[in-house]
C-alpha cells in the first residue's frame, strides 16, 4: 500500500507518523554539573555523570537517568536546554519530566530557521507578570483569531518529588482552526529547534535576598518533542540522506527537505501543500519527450483555467512550441511517426533551384515552388514544362 497514492494510482495527501523528534538528538545545555567534579556529580565518571544526552536518550539501563545543571547560587538562575531537530517538524506536544522539584518559571521557545531566531510557544509560571510580562492564560485559550504564546500555571510537583511540563500546540491555538486550511496554524506548529528556558527554581520563589539562597540545581529527563516530520502532505516518511541529514522522502513530483517545491521538470502547476481534499501534486510538463526543462508561467496557467502553466524549454529534435508540439522552421511533421518520435519532424529539403525558399509547409512538407516546378521538394518540372538552363526560371513551357 502506498500512503501517497490511492489504489488507482492517483496522488493523495500523506504525512509521516507521529514521533518523538527529540529522541536521540543532541541537547545543548547551558549548564551541566560535573566540571569540576563534586560529591554527587562527576562528568568524567559515567556512573556519576549527568549529561544532557540523558534528556533525549531512550532510557533503558542508563544510571543515572537524569541530566543535572550546575549548582546555582546566585542570579542569573536560568538554564537553557536547546534541541535541534535536524529539520522542520510539525509539533503536536512538548514535554519534560523533572527529577527534582519543578521550576517555578519555564519558557518554551521554538525556532523555524535552525536556531537563528526564536519565538515563544508558551510560558509556565506562578508569576506570569513579573517573570514574563504576560497575563495568565484565559481559560478559553487565545482571545485573538490566531495562535498565541500564553502563560500557563507552573509545572506542579508530584508525589515523587518531581514534576511534568506538558505543552500541547492546541493550548496556544484558538479552537476551530484547521491545519489544512490555516497558514497561521501551519506556521504555529512548525519548528526546527526547541528551546526550554528554566527561568526560576521553585524553592527560591520567595527568596529576595540572594545571599540567603540555597544552592539549587535543575534536574530533568525525558525531553519529548512529539511531532511529524514536516513534508507538506507530500511524503509519508523521512529518511537520512547521504550526508546524514533528515529529509522527506518526497512524492507527488516534489523535492526539498520539506517537499516544499516542485521538481525541476514538474512545473506545470504551482507548488501547493497537499490537503485532505486535494493532493496538489506537481505535474510534469507536457513536452512530448523533446525537452528536459520547463518553466511555470502564471499567466498561461490562469488562461488555461488553472490547469496547465508549463512552458517547455529548449525543445530538441527540431520541434518547437510551448509543448514541443510542432516542428521548427525548415522542418515538417512526418505523418507516419508519433509526435513523441525523435524523428517526428523531417527536414523540408527544398530543392536549391526549383524551390522559391527553404521553408516548407509544416504540416504537408510542401516547399514553395517556382513557376512551372512541382513536387514536394520542387525538384521536377510540371507537366507541360521542361528544364531550362536558367537557375532563375528552371522550368519553361514546352514549345
Amino acid at each position: 500500500a502506498d500512503p501517497c497514492h490511492d489504489q488507482g494510482g492517483a496522488p493523495r495527501s500523506c504525512v509521516p507518523g507521529l514521533v518523538n523528534a527529540a529522541l536521540g538528538r543532541e541537547v545543548l545545555a547551558s549548564s551541566t554539573c560535573g566540571r569540576p567534579a563534586t560529591r554527587v556529580c562527576d562528568a568524567s565518571d559515567p556512573r556519576r555523570a549527568h549529561p544532557a544526552a540523558l534528556l533525549t536518550s531512550a532510557g533503558g539501563t542508563a544510571n543515572p537517568v537524569c541530566w543535572r545543571s550546575e549548582s546555582l547560587r546566585k542570579a542569573p538562575l536560568n538554564v537553557t536546554l536547546t534541541v535541534p531537530l535536524g529539520k522542520a517538524f510539525e509539533l503536536v506536544f512538548v514535554s519534560l519530566r523533572f527529577c527534582s522539584a519543578p521550576p517555578a518559571s519555564v519558557a518554551l521557545l521554538k525556532s523555524q530557521d535552525h536556531g537563528r531566531t526564536w519565538a515563544p510557544l508558551g510560558f509556565f509560571s506562578s508569576r506570569c507578570g513579573p517573570d514574563y510580562g504576560r497575563l495568565p492564560a484565559p481559560a478559553n485559550g487565545p482571545a485573538g483569531p490566531g495562535p498565541e504564546a500564553l502563560c500557563f500555571p507552573e509545572p506542579q510537583a508530584q508525589s515523587d518529588g518531581g514534576g511534568l511540563l506538558a505543552f500541547s500546540v492546541q493550548d496556544g491555538s484558538p479552537p476551530g482552526l484547521d491545519l489544512d486550511s490555516s497558514p497561521v496554524l501551519q506556521d504555529w506548529v512548525t519548528a526546527t529547534d526547541i528551546r526550554v528556558v528554566l527561568t526560576r527554581p521553585a524553592m527560591l520563589e520567595d527568596t529576595r535576598d540572594s545571599e540567603a539562597m540555597v544552592p539549587y540545581s535543575y534536574s530533568a529527563t525525558e525531553l519529548q518533542v512529539g511531532g511529524r516530520c514536516k513534508c507538506n502532505g507530500h511524503a509519508s516518511r523521512c529518511l537520512l540522506d547521504t550526508q546524514g541529514l533528515l529529509i522527506c522522502d518526497c512524492r507527488h513530483g516534489t523535492e526539498g527537505p520539506d517537499c516544499s517545491r516542485c521538481k525541476p521538470f514538474y512545473c506545470d502547476r504551482p507548488w501547493q501543500r497537499a490537503t485532505a481534499r486535494e493532493a496538489h501534486a506537481c505535474f510534469a510538463c507536457s513536452c512530448n519527450g523533446h525537452a528536459r526543462r520547463c518553466r511555470f508561467n502564471m499567466e498561461l496557467y490562469r488562461l488555461s483555467g488553472r490547469r496547465s502553466g508549463g512552458v517547455c524549454l529548449n525543445c530538441r529534435h527540431n520541434t518547437a512550441g510551448r509543448h514541443c508540439h510542432y516542428c521548427r522552421e525548415g522542418f515538417y511533421r512526418d505523418p507516419g511517426r508519433a509526435l513523441s518520435d525523435r524523428r517526428a519532424c523531417r527536414a523540408c529539403d527544398c530543392h536549391p533551384v526549383g524551390a522559391a525558399g527553404k521553408t516548407c509547409n509544416q504540416t504537408t512538407g510542401q516547399c514553395p515552388c517556382k513557376d512551372g516546378v512541382t513536387g514536394l521538394t520542387c525538384n521536377r518540372c510540371a507537366p507541360g514544362f521542361q528544364q531550362s538552363r536558367s537557375p532563375v526560371a528552371p522550368c519553361v513551357k514546352t514549345p
Binding site: 530543392h351 533551384v353 512541382t374 518540372c381 507537366p383 528544364q387 538552363r389 532563375v392
Partner: peptide, 23 residues
C-alpha cells in the same frame, strides 16, 4: 506523368554565380 528530377548539370550559372548552391 512523372517528370525527371531537375538536372543540376544542365544549369548555366554564368550570370548567377552568387546563387549557385554548394554541392
Amino acid at each position: 506523368e512523372v517528370m525527371p528530377t531537375l538536372d543540376m548539370a544542365l544549369f548555366d550559372w554564368t550570370d548567377y554565380e552568387d546563387l549557385k548552391p554548394e554541392v
